[in-house]
């Protein structure tokens, strides 16, 4: 774990890390990874990958529309909106 990796991860997660905390975070992440790394001691070559710890399968839905029109409520709780749309700072490709 180095400064560059932490910078990349924090950018990808849109998390701002204060400069003075950066070293501590690098150290913490390093320790976490070392801790989890212990799992590699065990040979899991004939164990199928686990997709969910519940080891159950999903209940599914029938294809039916159940949602109500929540437009007004949803737009109201957004940080910025007009009568029809959520508004965000302009993003253009």
């Amino acid at each position: 774990m180095d400064k560059k990796t932490v910078t990349t991860i924090s950018y990808l997660s849109r998390l701002k890390i204060d400069d003075e905390k950066e070293e501590k975070i690098i150290e913490d992440l390093d320790n976490i990874i070392k801790f989890v790394d212990q799992l590699n001691i065990i040979d899991t070559s004939d164990v199928a990958p686990l997709t969910n710890p519940l080891e159950k399968t999903a209940k599914t839905r029938k294809d039916i529309v159940t949602a109500k029109n929540l437009k007004k409520d949803l737009l109201e709780v957004a940080p910025s909106s007009n009568d029809d749309y959520f508004l965000v700072p302009r993003v253009v490709e």
């Binding site: 839905r61 294809d63 039916i64 529309v65 159940t66 437009k71 029809d84 959520f86």
Partner: peptide, 19 residues
Amino acid sequence: SKLFSGGSTEFGAEANTHV
């Protein structure tokens, strides 16, 4: 309906009414 919710997939509806 949608892949994970009961929202309608109808095309061309008034904005943000099928959410």
